[in-house]
């Protein structure tokens, strides 16, 4: 078969930019690897595309996805298990999913984490897309170096997700102590033996902190966060403890906090939650949603919304918004 050919490097810059933007990111990335000239062309012309990266790193593999308006435009999968170091996948063949394609980069007999680090560096250098999301699992023994690696991107990553299967509470505390994220962090971890440890819980700083499985979050842990917004699902906090937290808040604790949402809080006795806060009921906004407001010592106002869901009372939530001046 005769392969048609076209001298893309001899095109005017604007025309080549258009050609590149018609290609899928995998093709553009491959082109950037062929020569310094092509790499330079990609770096200078494949810009402002509105695309974002999401990166998922594991001990033995990494998945980099490119997105546009929430839709995946390409998948780059790095895997050390395969016994080939070839870029073996045929682009656009029928074996790929119809809506996007995946390029598998197989690593053999190499330090996979080093290689994945290099590859991610390469990606960010070639594409200059913002990193919308970076997720990692601290479930393997190399979790310390992985956290160190993630930290190198935390400043420019919008959301860091800590996920994986059950991890020991000590390892979770290590994440809290060492993960540097000024932006959003979401924990999707199950923690082992969280009741057995009584030592100091490290302070954790991030703009927004979210826990999907928050059953190990008790009052002491809640107090250890330092951020603007906490969303915790299924926290093990009762009305009396929540009242203690809110009284501390009214007295000036957690001065940065603007929102605390406790999802799946369960049945709440609001009189107990708001005891000694001189709270006043604002009104009822629906059959099940009620609001109260109370004032902090500095004059700021907090509004507590209790969304009681019946008959699934366990799914009821409490949302506290603090209006800081």
């Amino acid at each position: 078969m005769v392969v048609e050919s076209f001298p893309i490097l001899r095109l005017p810059s604007l025309a080549r930019e258009k050609v590149l933007k018609f290609l899928i990111p995998i093709q553009v990335f491959l082109l950037s690897q062929f020569s310094k000239r092509m790499r330079y062309a990609v770096k200078s012309e494949y810009r402002n595309t509105g695309q974002e990266l999401s990166v998922s790193v594991h001990s033995s593999s990494m998945l980099i996805c490119t997105h546009f308006s929430g839709k995946i435009t390409g998948e780059f999968y790095v895997n050390e298990i395969e016994i080939s170091n070839e870029w073996g996948m045929r682009i656009g063949s029928k074996s790929f999913k119809k809506r996007f394609i995946r390029l598998t980069l197989r690593i053999y007999n190499r330090n996979s984490q080093e290689y994945t680090k290099q590859l991610l560096e390469e990606f960010i250098d070639v594409f200059s897309f913002p990193i919308a999301k970076m997720s990692f699992s601290p479930d393997k023994e190399d979790y310390k170096s992985m956290i160190q690696w993630v930290n190198t991107y935390s400043q420019k990553t919008q959301l860091i997700i800590v996920n994986g299967p059950r991890v020991p509470v000590e390892r979770y505390f290590y994440v809290l102590e060492h993960l540097e994220s000024p932006n959003n962090v979401e924990f999707q971890l199950l923690i082992e033996d969280h009741d057995s440890r009584s030592s100091r819980i490290p302070t954790f700083r991030a703009e927004k902190i979210k826990f999907i499985y928050g059953d190990f979050i008790r009052l002491r842990h809640l107090k250890s966060f330092n951020g603007k917004e906490y969303i915790i699902r299924e926290a093990t906090i009762n009305d009396k403890e929540l009242n203690e937290f809110l009284r501390g808040l009214a007295a000036g604790a957690n001065p940065n906090l603007r929102r605390l949402k406790l999802e799946r809080y369960g049945k709440a006795v609001i009189d107990d939650v708001l005891k000694n806060l001189r709270a006043g009921k604002i009104g009822e906004y629906s059959d099940y949603e009620e609001q109260w407001s109370f004032e902090l010592e500095n004059g700021n106002q907090a509004i507590l919304t209790y969304d009681e869901l019946l008959p699934r009372i366990e799914e009821s939530s409490i949302d506290i918004v603090i209006n800081r001046d």
């Binding site: 050919s5 050609v19 062929f34």
Partner: peptide
């Protein structure tokens, strides 16, 4: 016209891509 050039990359392996777009090595 640029779309037509981009379409030339359809279904090509990395090695074929290099040939299609006449990309010289360093």
């Amino acid at each position: 016209s640029c779309k037509k050039v981009a379409n030339m990359a359809q279904g090509k392996t990395p090695a074929q891509l290099r040939r299609v777009y006449l990309l010289p090595s360093d």
